[in-house]
């Protein structure tokens, strides 16, 4: 079967320097990390990969996890399973919960951190959680003979629909950096199945710091795969500095503000998705209240 299909060339760089040479010669080549998303597309095989495939699995530089007192840096080719097992004592609980939600153990062995962040057209759990944790990604841009390195906040890697926007076709995400000073209130909820039924799915994450009786450093992100990647600066600023417990009326009004924002900016989200996201957001705030009272 598929006799007429041309076999794409596979390039296997071992260092970032070798990668730079290959990407300059083949700027349209597909970058292959874990391959779980690429291969789960219905049109993957037989498919076109005219400029070949660059297999990143041989680049040891991308498989390292390093840490110091302030942050941890995770290589783009570290798998979700490796990160879960090595970072159990180090990583914030919200990230561990997110990694566990990425799939079963069998799939997590293949999912890489860089691959999960660089899916071109849809956003899933990891991007949402890293956005609320204010993580940043090191991105190398290859333009002509020049290589430029940028640290970009994960929240700014995507447009409002969740499409990846690295600024150049020839780019490589090498590592991500997560600060080790995180807030004591972290919540993550994934509803629906992002792979089997992405149209009904949604991801909500909230991260905040409680200082005495007020909230600070509130980061909130809600994602609907293929539809929206929404960070509400308005709600974040309204919540930051607010006294705890938050009045139930304010909780209610904030949740409806979120719905209004989402409907205004993204018209493809279904009513059910909106309602579920609203209720989850409300439950986060009620949870915050109950913790502050206990």
């Amino acid at each position: 079967m598929y006799e007429g299909v041309r076999s794409p060339l596979i390039y296997t760089p071992r260092t970032i320097g070798e990668f730079a040479t290959v990407i300059r010669r083949h700027p349209q080549a597909i970058l292959w990390a874990g391959g779980t998303y690429l291969m789960s597309q219905p049109d993957y095989y037989p498919g076109e990969a005219k400029d070949g495939i660059i297999d990143l699995s041989h680049m040891e530089e991308l498989k390292r996890i390093t840490r110091n007192d302030r942050y941890v840096e995770i290589g783009a080719m570290v798998t979700a399973r490796q990160l879960l097992s090595t970072g159990r004592l180090l990583l914030p609980p919200i990230l561990q919960q997110t990694l566990q939600s990425l799939g079963t153990q069998v799939v997590r062995r293949q999912i890489t951190i860089g691959g999960a962040l660089c899916i071109s057209d849809t956003r899933l759990s990891l991007s949402t959680t890293l956005a609320v944790l204010a993580a940043s990604a090191e991105v190398k841009l290859y333009n002509d003979s020049k290589v430029t390195t940028h640290w970009i906040p994960v929240a700014k890697l995507y447009d409002k629909e969740g499409k990846l926007n690295l600024g150049s076709k020839s780019a490589l995400l090498t590592r991500i950096r997560i600060g080790l000073e995180f807030g004591d209130f972290q919540r993550f909820v994934l509803f629906g199945d992002p792979i089997r039924k992405s149209s009904e799915c949604g991801i909500v994450a909230l991260h905040a710091k409680r200082e005495q009786n007020s909230l600070s450093k509130v980061q909130f992100c809600v994602t609907f795969p293929r539809k929206a990647f929404h960070i509400s600066k308005d709600i974040e600023s309204k919540l930051s500095g607010s006294a705890l417990p938050i009045h139930p009326e304010k909780v209610n009004s904030l949740s409806y503000e979120l719905v209004a924002e989402l409907t205004k900016m993204h018209n493809t989200i279904s009513d059910l998705q909106l309602e579920r996201a609203r209720r989850i957001f409300e439950s986060f705030l009620h949870d915050l209240n109950s913790q502050s009272l206990s």
Partner: peptide
């Protein structure tokens, strides 16, 4: 690619979905 989970094999002694492993790997 719709994740039916019927194509499990042991890949280097660890279970893996064979539909997610390309020939070059």
């Amino acid at each position: 690619g719709n994740a039916c989970g019927n194509c499990v094999v042991l890949f280097n002694d660890e279970a893996a979905l064979s539909c997610l492993i390309p020939a070059f790997r």
